[in-house]
Design a protein around this nucleic acid. Structure first.
Lengths: 190, 190
DNA sequence: CTTACGGACTAACGCTTGTTAGTTTGAGCT
DNA sequence: AGCTCAAACTAACAAGCGTTAGTCCGTAAG
């Protein structure tokens, strides 16, 4: 048995790039096969369905975010520090898988059996996030504004990272995370 | 001749909502017809093609942004004031057409003849935006960080507005624009 | 009453979709 | 040399796609 799943992983990686460019629904199995240099039917020696590919891309990423948040929320740190860690979490995951983040953001609604599970993960994540912001407001670290608005403002930027991280390959993750944290926390006003 | 295009507009509005939920490629003409309470073939009494619907949704919105930016960039105002106006522009357009913004953000790549034109509009918009930020840095109003990073950070939030504006119908646009400006410009730090 | 016509319908078209069945190829082991 | 087996292939499927052609119906103007 050789390194288990290499060819399958190649297919999933190729699909991830195609899904980023055109979206899940617009990519056909024949498109994917062509990109892999094979015929569509041959894909089925390695995967069971198109749907399964989407699931493989999205669910593993969503679980990574959940695991990261589970660690952060339990720490004994100030709210602002926790927010910085969330930024770093997004930068880290997005840097390692920028294409997959496109599917996570744009094609989650095409999950079928896993849709409910995905939505549960997402809702929990956002609940934990907003809780950290509320604690920050209570401890006078964070400005007293609608916590949901604050979260969506930050989260929008973090969710869009996949669009411009591939263009800035020179920058290393740590520096980017620090710059971004500073921008989101302290604003752009001099 | 009666108010010109009413039925056609109904079709486009219905399509806009469906496109938001599933994306352009996943919505079929039969889906759209069902939502309109008619048969797919009947749609073609009012529109020429599926493609044309997408174009009608996206191009008009993109041109609205361009027109707004053309006004703002020529004004004799401080950079920070111009940035506040850009925020207000996004809030205004998104409030009036939250569903269409989903297509603009996620389905622009499925434009065909109009793709090049759309990309030209978008690039000009971003160039004007980044220019305002550069002027703000030069005049010591804005923190001296990478202007592209600043722009993407702000623009990500503005582009995601369509996701949560429909949930907050109670808030009026002006208040929202002010809160958001304050958050993006001054940060969340107390 | 007749005519015109917007706006719906049915039926069908050629093509593409995801997927299955069955077959062939070729490298590595004994 | 013969066997195994992963991984490619060809051929085909039923279903669904966007779209066209031709028809029918009801309302409103002459």
């Amino acid at each position: 048995m050789n390194t288990e799943g290499t060819r399958r992983d190649e297919i999933i990686n190729t699909a991830t790039k195609l899904f980023k460019e055109k979206g899940y629904s617009a990519v056909t199995m024949r498109d994917l096969a062509t990109a892999m240099g094979m015929k569509a039917a041959s894909l089925y020696n390695h995967i069971n369905s198109k749907q399964e590919i989407l699931k493989a891309i999205i669910i593993s990423l969503a679980e990574e975010f959940t695991q990261g948040m589970d660690v952060i929320k339990k720490l004994d740190e100030k709210a602002i520090e926790k927010l910085k860690m969330i930024v770093a979490l997004h930068v880290d995951i997005t840097t390692r898988n920028p294409y997959g983040m496109a599917s996570l953001n744009n094609d989650w609604m095409h999950l079928e059996e896993q849709l409910v599970y995905y939505l549960k993960l997402r809702e929990s994540y956002e609940q934990d996030f907003v809780e950290i912001i509320k604690n920050g407001i209570a401890s006078n670290e964070v400005v007293n504004k609608n916590p949901e608005v604050i979260m969506f403002s930050i989260l929008s930027t973090l969710r869009s990272l996949y669009l411009w991280i591939p263009k800035k390959e020179e920058i290393d993750s740590k520096v980017l995370a620090e710059n971004l944290s500073d921008l989101l926390i302290n604003g752009i006003n001099k």
